[in-house]
Protein backbone atom coordinates (compact mmCIF):
# COMPACT_ATOMS: atom_id res chain seq x y z
CA UNK A 1 0.00 0.00 0.00
CA UNK A 2 1.02 3.59 -0.35
CA UNK A 3 3.77 5.30 1.60
CA UNK A 4 1.30 7.93 2.65
CA UNK A 5 -1.12 5.57 4.39
CA UNK A 6 -1.67 6.38 8.05
CA UNK A 7 -4.01 3.44 8.63
CA UNK A 8 -3.51 0.13 6.89
CA UNK A 9 -5.57 -2.93 7.67
CA UNK A 10 -5.06 -6.30 6.03
CA UNK A 11 -7.50 -9.15 6.60
CA UNK A 12 -8.41 -7.64 9.94
CA UNK A 13 -10.69 -10.02 11.82
CA UNK A 14 -12.50 -10.03 15.13
CA UNK A 15 -14.30 -13.07 16.40
CA UNK A 16 -16.79 -12.85 19.25
CA UNK A 17 -17.82 -16.23 20.59
CA UNK A 18 -17.23 -18.08 17.31
CA UNK A 19 -18.97 -15.43 15.21
CA UNK A 20 -16.92 -13.02 13.13
CA UNK A 21 -18.00 -9.46 13.95
CA UNK A 22 -15.33 -8.16 11.58
CA UNK A 23 -14.43 -10.55 8.81
CA UNK A 24 -11.14 -10.19 6.92
CA UNK A 25 -11.42 -6.55 6.01
CA UNK A 26 -8.66 -4.62 4.26
CA UNK A 27 -8.51 -0.92 3.73
CA UNK A 28 -6.14 1.99 4.00
CA UNK A 29 -6.53 5.63 4.83
CA UNK A 30 -4.12 8.15 3.35
CA UNK A 31 -2.63 11.20 4.99
CA UNK A 32 -5.08 14.07 5.17
CA UNK A 33 -7.91 11.93 3.89
CA UNK A 34 -11.42 11.76 5.33
CA UNK A 35 -12.55 8.16 5.23
CA UNK A 36 -16.08 7.11 6.10
CA UNK A 37 -17.17 3.78 7.54
CA UNK A 38 -20.82 3.19 6.74
CA UNK A 39 -23.12 0.33 7.40
CA UNK A 40 -26.18 -0.81 9.28
CA UNK A 41 -26.22 -1.40 13.04
CA UNK A 42 -24.03 -4.27 14.09
CA UNK A 43 -22.04 -4.25 10.86
CA UNK A 44 -18.74 -4.08 12.75
CA UNK A 45 -17.76 -0.42 12.50
CA UNK A 46 -17.16 0.18 16.18
CA UNK A 47 -15.35 -3.13 16.53
CA UNK A 48 -13.01 -2.14 13.69
CA UNK A 49 -12.31 1.20 15.34
CA UNK A 50 -11.56 -0.40 18.71
CA UNK A 51 -9.08 -2.75 17.05
CA UNK A 52 -7.33 0.17 15.36
CA UNK A 53 -6.84 1.75 18.79
CA UNK A 54 -5.69 -1.42 20.50
CA UNK A 55 -8.71 -1.21 22.81
CA UNK A 56 -9.85 -4.69 21.90
CA UNK A 57 -7.81 -7.74 20.95
CA UNK A 58 -7.35 -8.52 17.28
CA UNK A 59 -8.38 -12.06 16.34
CA UNK A 60 -6.55 -12.12 13.04
CA UNK A 61 -4.94 -10.08 10.30
CA UNK A 62 -2.62 -7.15 10.42
CA UNK A 63 -3.09 -3.52 11.16
CA UNK A 64 -0.76 -0.53 11.22
CA UNK A 65 -1.75 2.85 12.53
CA UNK A 66 0.70 5.68 11.87
CA UNK A 67 3.28 2.95 11.35
CA UNK A 68 2.72 1.13 14.66
CA UNK A 69 1.03 -2.10 15.57
CA UNK A 70 -1.78 -1.21 18.02
CA UNK A 71 -1.55 -4.61 19.72
CA UNK A 72 2.19 -4.37 20.43
CA UNK A 73 2.80 -0.66 20.64
CA UNK A 74 -0.49 0.71 21.96
CA UNK A 75 1.11 3.70 23.66
CA UNK A 76 2.77 4.92 20.45
CA UNK A 77 -0.53 4.59 18.61
CA UNK A 78 -2.59 6.22 21.31
CA UNK A 79 -0.17 9.13 21.60
CA UNK A 80 -0.76 10.01 17.93
CA UNK A 81 -4.40 9.11 17.47
CA UNK A 82 -7.40 10.98 18.83
CA UNK A 83 -10.61 9.06 19.50
CA UNK A 84 -14.16 10.24 19.90
CA UNK A 85 -16.26 7.27 21.13
CA UNK A 86 -19.83 6.84 19.90
CA UNK A 87 -21.20 7.95 23.24
CA UNK A 88 -18.54 10.21 24.62
CA UNK A 89 -18.59 10.85 28.35
CA UNK A 90 -16.85 13.34 30.59
CA UNK A 91 -16.53 13.77 34.32
CA UNK A 92 -19.72 15.71 34.91
CA UNK A 93 -18.72 17.41 38.13
CA UNK A 94 -15.56 18.81 36.55
CA UNK A 95 -15.38 21.80 34.23
CA UNK A 96 -14.71 21.44 30.51
CA UNK A 97 -11.18 22.76 30.92
CA UNK A 98 -10.51 20.48 33.90
CA UNK A 99 -11.59 17.46 31.90
CA UNK A 100 -9.10 18.43 29.20
CA UNK A 101 -6.43 19.13 31.83
CA UNK A 102 -6.78 15.59 33.11
CA UNK A 103 -6.37 14.17 29.61
CA UNK A 104 -3.45 16.50 28.95
CA UNK A 105 -1.71 15.22 32.08
CA UNK A 106 -2.34 11.63 31.04
CA UNK A 107 -0.77 12.40 27.66
CA UNK A 108 2.13 13.94 29.53
CA UNK A 109 2.04 17.56 28.40
CA UNK A 110 4.03 20.00 30.49
CA UNK A 111 2.09 22.57 32.46
CA UNK A 112 3.02 25.54 30.26
CA UNK A 113 2.03 23.97 26.94
CA UNK A 114 -1.01 22.40 28.58
CA UNK A 115 -2.89 25.61 29.33
CA UNK A 116 -2.12 27.14 25.97
CA UNK A 117 -3.19 24.01 24.07
CA UNK A 118 -6.41 23.67 26.04
CA UNK A 119 -7.36 27.29 25.47
CA UNK A 120 -6.62 27.04 21.76
CA UNK A 121 -8.59 23.80 21.37
CA UNK A 122 -11.64 25.07 23.26
CA UNK A 123 -11.55 28.20 21.16
CA UNK A 124 -11.47 26.21 17.91
CA UNK A 125 -14.65 24.31 18.79
CA UNK A 126 -16.39 27.38 20.15
CA UNK A 127 -16.37 26.40 23.80
CA UNK A 128 -14.00 29.11 25.05
CA UNK A 129 -16.81 30.84 26.94
CA UNK A 130 -17.92 27.62 28.62
CA UNK A 131 -14.42 26.50 29.58
CA UNK A 132 -15.02 26.80 33.31
CA UNK A 133 -18.57 25.48 33.29
CA UNK A 134 -19.28 22.01 34.63
CA UNK A 135 -19.78 19.44 31.88
CA UNK A 136 -22.99 18.33 33.63
CA UNK A 137 -24.64 21.43 32.16
CA UNK A 138 -23.52 20.66 28.58
CA UNK A 139 -25.82 19.63 25.77
CA UNK A 140 -25.00 16.66 23.61
CA UNK A 141 -23.65 18.89 20.87
CA UNK A 142 -21.35 20.63 23.32
CA UNK A 143 -20.06 17.31 24.61
CA UNK A 144 -19.29 16.18 21.08
CA UNK A 145 -17.42 19.42 20.48
CA UNK A 146 -15.54 18.99 23.72
CA UNK A 147 -14.57 15.53 22.49
CA UNK A 148 -13.19 17.09 19.30
CA UNK A 149 -11.38 19.72 21.39
CA UNK A 150 -9.64 16.88 23.18
CA UNK A 151 -8.40 15.50 19.86
CA UNK A 152 -7.27 18.99 18.77
CA UNK A 153 -5.45 19.53 22.05
CA UNK A 154 -3.73 16.19 21.66
CA UNK A 155 -2.36 17.34 18.31
CA UNK A 156 -3.33 13.96 16.86
CA UNK A 157 -2.21 12.89 13.38
CA UNK A 158 -5.31 10.76 13.00
CA UNK A 159 -8.78 11.44 14.34
CA UNK A 160 -11.07 8.44 14.74
CA UNK A 161 -14.66 9.51 15.22
CA UNK A 162 -17.38 6.98 15.95
CA UNK A 163 -20.75 8.35 14.84
CA UNK A 164 -19.85 11.94 15.65
CA UNK A 165 -23.10 13.40 14.34
CA UNK A 166 -25.62 11.01 15.87
CA UNK A 167 -28.18 12.82 17.99
CA UNK A 168 -27.23 16.30 16.83
CA UNK A 169 -29.57 18.84 15.29
CA UNK A 170 -28.79 20.11 11.77
CA UNK A 171 -27.10 23.23 13.06
CA UNK A 172 -24.89 21.37 15.52
CA UNK A 173 -24.11 18.84 12.80
CA UNK A 174 -22.92 21.58 10.45
CA UNK A 175 -20.72 23.05 13.14
CA UNK A 176 -19.23 19.68 13.91
CA UNK A 177 -18.59 18.93 10.25
CA UNK A 178 -16.90 22.30 10.03
CA UNK A 179 -14.46 21.27 12.73
CA UNK A 180 -13.87 17.94 10.98
CA UNK A 181 -13.08 19.76 7.73
CA UNK A 182 -10.65 21.82 9.75
CA UNK A 183 -8.83 18.59 10.65
CA UNK A 184 -8.35 17.82 7.01
CA UNK A 185 -7.11 21.31 6.30
CA UNK A 186 -4.36 20.72 8.86
CA UNK A 187 -3.36 17.43 7.31
CA UNK A 188 -4.99 15.34 10.00
CA UNK A 189 -6.49 12.15 8.64
CA UNK A 190 -10.01 11.38 9.73
CA UNK A 191 -11.74 8.02 9.99
CA UNK A 192 -15.38 8.37 10.85
CA UNK A 193 -18.36 6.11 11.07
CA UNK A 194 -21.84 7.39 10.53
CA UNK A 195 -25.43 6.79 9.68
CA UNK A 196 -26.12 10.29 8.42
CA UNK A 197 -25.29 9.50 4.85
CA UNK A 198 -26.09 12.83 3.26
CA UNK A 199 -23.84 14.61 5.69
CA UNK A 200 -21.07 12.06 5.38
CA UNK A 201 -21.16 12.38 1.65
CA UNK A 202 -20.43 16.06 1.87
CA UNK A 203 -17.15 15.60 3.73
CA UNK A 204 -15.79 12.13 2.95
CA UNK A 205 -13.11 11.62 0.32
CA UNK A 206 -13.76 7.89 0.31
CA UNK A 207 -16.18 5.59 2.04
CA UNK A 208 -16.34 1.90 2.89
CA UNK A 209 -19.71 0.27 3.08
CA UNK A 210 -19.81 -2.40 5.79
CA UNK A 211 -22.18 -5.28 5.69
CA UNK A 212 -22.13 -8.22 8.07
CA UNK A 213 -18.55 -7.60 9.13
CA UNK A 214 -17.22 -7.31 5.58
CA UNK A 215 -16.48 -4.32 3.41
CA UNK A 216 -19.00 -4.62 0.62
CA UNK A 217 -18.01 -1.54 -1.33
CA UNK A 218 -15.21 0.95 -1.10
CA UNK A 219 -14.28 4.04 -3.04
CA UNK A 220 -15.34 7.61 -3.71
CA UNK A 221 -19.03 8.33 -3.73
CA UNK A 222 -18.94 8.82 -7.51
CA UNK A 223 -17.25 5.45 -8.00
CA UNK A 224 -19.81 3.71 -5.83
CA UNK A 225 -22.56 5.48 -7.73
CA UNK A 226 -21.28 4.12 -11.03
CA UNK A 227 -20.92 0.65 -9.58
CA UNK A 228 -24.28 0.39 -7.90
CA UNK A 229 -26.56 2.71 -9.81
CA UNK A 230 -24.84 2.31 -13.15
CA UNK A 231 -24.41 5.99 -13.68
CA UNK A 232 -26.27 7.85 -11.12
CA UNK A 233 -26.13 11.44 -12.39
CA UNK A 234 -29.52 12.95 -13.00
CA UNK A 235 -29.58 16.16 -15.04
CA UNK A 236 -32.75 18.24 -15.14
CA UNK A 237 -33.29 20.63 -17.99
CA UNK A 238 -36.01 23.14 -18.66
CA UNK A 239 -35.81 24.48 -22.18
CA UNK A 240 -37.89 24.72 -25.32
CA UNK A 241 -37.18 23.51 -28.81
CA UNK A 242 -38.68 20.69 -30.83
CA UNK A 243 -36.75 17.46 -30.95
CA UNK A 244 -34.53 18.43 -28.07
CA UNK A 245 -35.15 15.17 -26.26
CA UNK A 246 -33.94 13.13 -29.23
CA UNK A 247 -30.81 15.22 -29.60
CA UNK A 248 -29.99 15.04 -25.91
CA UNK A 249 -30.31 11.25 -25.99
CA UNK A 250 -27.43 11.14 -28.41
CA UNK A 251 -24.97 12.74 -26.00
CA UNK A 252 -22.38 10.11 -25.02
CA UNK A 253 -22.98 8.86 -21.47
CA UNK A 254 -26.69 9.57 -21.43
CA UNK A 255 -28.69 6.42 -20.84
CA UNK A 256 -32.20 7.79 -20.77
CA UNK A 257 -34.32 10.86 -21.34
CA UNK A 258 -37.62 11.35 -19.64
CA UNK A 259 -40.21 14.06 -20.02
CA UNK A 260 -41.14 15.36 -16.58
CA UNK A 261 -43.38 18.28 -17.56
CA UNK A 262 -44.00 20.83 -20.26
CA UNK A 263 -40.58 21.71 -21.59
CA UNK A 264 -38.95 19.78 -18.76
CA UNK A 265 -36.61 16.87 -19.37
CA UNK A 266 -34.67 14.59 -17.06
CA UNK A 267 -31.51 12.86 -18.27
CA UNK A 268 -29.95 9.77 -16.71
CA UNK A 269 -26.21 9.82 -17.23
CA UNK A 270 -23.05 8.23 -15.88
CA UNK A 271 -21.32 11.57 -15.57
CA UNK A 272 -22.12 15.24 -15.37
CA UNK A 273 -23.40 16.06 -18.87
CA UNK A 274 -24.51 19.64 -18.20
CA UNK A 275 -22.00 21.30 -20.55
CA UNK A 276 -23.01 19.11 -23.51
CA UNK A 277 -26.72 19.52 -22.75
CA UNK A 278 -26.37 23.29 -22.61
CA UNK A 279 -24.46 23.25 -25.89
CA UNK A 280 -27.26 21.26 -27.56
CA UNK A 281 -29.92 23.69 -26.40
CA UNK A 282 -27.88 26.62 -27.63
CA UNK A 283 -27.18 24.89 -30.93
CA UNK A 284 -30.93 24.52 -31.46
CA UNK A 285 -31.34 28.16 -30.60
CA UNK A 286 -33.66 27.12 -27.79
CA UNK A 287 -34.05 29.05 -24.57
CA UNK A 288 -32.46 27.45 -21.53
CA UNK A 289 -34.49 28.16 -18.40
CA UNK A 290 -33.05 25.69 -15.96
CA UNK A 291 -30.15 23.27 -15.83
CA UNK A 292 -29.30 21.30 -12.71
CA UNK A 293 -27.56 18.12 -11.71
CA UNK A 294 -28.20 15.69 -8.88
CA UNK A 295 -25.03 13.87 -7.99
CA UNK A 296 -25.38 10.22 -6.99
CA UNK A 297 -26.53 10.24 -3.43
CA UNK A 298 -24.97 7.98 -0.88
CA UNK A 299 -28.43 7.47 0.50
CA UNK A 300 -29.61 6.03 -2.80
CA UNK A 301 -26.48 3.92 -3.18
CA UNK A 302 -26.84 2.58 0.33
CA UNK A 303 -30.54 1.78 0.00
CA UNK A 304 -30.09 0.33 -3.46
CA UNK A 305 -27.19 -1.84 -2.36
CA UNK A 306 -29.10 -3.43 0.50
CA UNK A 307 -32.23 -3.84 -1.61
CA UNK A 308 -30.22 -5.63 -4.21
CA UNK A 309 -28.64 -7.87 -1.57
CA UNK A 310 -32.07 -8.77 -0.26
CA UNK A 311 -33.23 -9.57 -3.80
CA UNK A 312 -30.20 -11.73 -4.38
CA UNK A 313 -30.82 -13.56 -1.12
CA UNK A 314 -34.41 -14.27 -2.14
CA UNK A 315 -33.28 -15.34 -5.62
CA UNK A 316 -30.68 -17.72 -4.30
CA UNK A 317 -33.21 -19.19 -1.89
CA UNK A 318 -35.64 -19.79 -4.75
CA UNK A 319 -32.80 -21.26 -6.77
CA UNK A 320 -32.02 -23.63 -3.95
CA UNK A 321 -35.66 -24.65 -3.76
CA UNK A 322 -35.72 -25.36 -7.51
CA UNK A 323 -32.62 -27.45 -7.27
CA UNK A 324 -34.10 -29.51 -4.46
Amino acid sequence: MSEQAVIEAKNLTKVYGGRAAVDHISFSVGRGEIFGLLGPNGAGKTTTILMLLGLTDISGGEVRVVGFDPAREPLSVKRRVGYLPDTVGFYDQMSAADNLRYTARLIGFKKAEREQKIAAALDRVGLAEQAEKRVATFSRGMRQRLGLAEILMKGAQVAILDEPTTGLDPHATSELLGVIRGFKAEGVSVLLSSHMLERVQSICDRVALFSGGKIALMGTVAELGREILGGGYVVDIEADGAGLAERLALIPGVSGVERTGIGKLRLQADRDVRPEAAAEVVAMQGRLKFLGVQEPSLDTIYTRYFERKAEQAVASKNGARHAA
Partner: peptide, 12 residues
Amino acid sequence: RRTLSRILAQPI
Protein backbone atom coordinates in the same frame (compact mmCIF):
# COMPACT_ATOMS: atom_id res chain seq x y z
CA ARG B 1 -20.21 7.78 32.65
CA ARG B 2 -18.83 6.49 29.33
CA THR B 3 -15.45 7.90 30.17
CA LEU B 4 -13.58 4.60 30.09
CA SER B 5 -12.94 4.30 26.36
CA ARG B 6 -11.98 7.96 26.14
CA ILE B 7 -9.49 7.68 28.99
CA LEU B 8 -8.06 4.38 27.74
CA ALA B 9 -7.55 5.97 24.32
CA GLN B 10 -4.89 8.12 25.98
CA PRO B 11 -1.35 6.73 26.13
CA ILE B 12 -1.76 4.77 29.37
